[in-house]
Simulated assay, not measured.
Amino acid sequence: MLQAVSFAVPAGAFRWLLGPSGAGKSSLLRVLQLAVLPSSGQFELFGTAVQRAPRRQLVRLRRRMGVVFQDLRLLPELSVFDNVALPMRLAQVPEPRVQAEVTEMLSWIGLGRRLRARPGELSVGEQQRAAIARAVVLRPPLLLADEPTGSLDAPQALRLMELLMELNQLGSTVIVATHNDQLVRHFKAPALRLERGRLVEDGQAGPPAAP
């Protein structure tokens, strides 16, 4: 359970989300992606007071996010291409652009020869890469990633973190939860650090003030 968690992430920033297992990282990501709403306090997202927003507005806010889930959530009946294309088609992007950008993205992450495969035909690492491609293909203003490199070897993890950093440099706000200390050391960035549901580091110059 999260307790007295208070922080602000400026638009276009990158934050690591760190802490031991059970610290509350996944719980915080669920709040940020609007899967659950806070039971108290105030939560503002894209300038909107979330607790006072009508359901329609929450739907619009969710559409401005890309989310990489720990359990991936690829649709088993769709091909890799169609899984990655889904956000673009829901956003009514013209099909020629969908074809071009999804093909380019899948080629970049090493799945160019697996376009028509279904998720069940992929390795776990390939599924992870497909899930990340789906989350970033629309270059969302906010990307939330829960252990996005957990099933990848070191070279693949570095390549995909470079993709997330590139997305950040293009203006997206990116928050990545990870246990991978090597990545955190390699990609220097401020961190949000949780311990037992409390925020002990808020990404600023020093630790947050005690509640």
Score class of each variant (00 low, 15 high):
P155M: 10
Q57P: 00
L142K: 08
R139K: 15
V59N: 12
V50D: 15
A91I: 02
L78E: 11
G120Y: 01
R114I: 03
L138E: 10
P76Y: 00
E77N: 14
I109M: 10
P119F: 00
Q128A: 13
R159N: 09
V124W: 00
L58M: 14
L122R: 01
A157C: 05
L32D: 02
E95P: 03
E44F: 00
R73H: 14
S40C: 12
S40R: 14
F81H: 11
A145N: 02
L160T: 06
L86R: 01
F43W: 08
A133D: 08
D71S: 15
M165G: 11
A135Y: 11
S107V: 13
L164R: 08
P54S: 08
P76F: 04
E126L: 12
D146E: 03
E95L: 11
R64L: 10
S107G: 08
L75E: 13
R62I: 08
R134N: 07
S79I: 11
E147G: 04
P148W: 02
A49F: 12
L29P: 06
L160M: 14
V84Q: 09
D153E: 13
L74W: 09
E121A: 14
P148C: 11
T149K: 06
R56G: 15
G120C: 03
F46Y: 09
P54I: 08
A133E: 04
A85E: 07
D71E: 15
V136Q: 12
V124H: 00
V102W: 04
L106N: 09
G150S: 12
L75F: 15
V59G: 04
V93F: 01
Q42E: 12
L142V: 10
P38T: 05
P140C: 06
I109K: 05
Q57T: 05
G41F: 01
F81C: 11
M88K: 02
L45Y: 07
Q57N: 07
R63N: 13
L158M: 06
L143W: 10
G66Y: 09
P141G: 09
E101Q: 15
V36R: 12
F46R: 09
Q128M: 02
T149G: 11
A117K: 04
L122S: 00
P38G: 06
P140G: 08
L34E: 02
D146N: 08
A130I: 02
P54L: 03
S123L: 00
R89W: 00
A133N: 06
A91H: 09
S39F: 06
R56A: 15
E126T: 09
V98A: 07
M88A: 07
D153Q: 06
P140F: 10
V84K: 11
A85D: 10
R56T: 13
G120P: 03
Q99H: 12
A133Q: 09
D71Y: 08
A157T: 05
A49S: 15
Q70R: 01
R139Q: 13
I132Y: 07
M161V: 04
P94I: 04
A131T: 11
R118L: 13
P38C: 06
L58N: 11
Q33R: 14
A154R: 15
W108S: 13
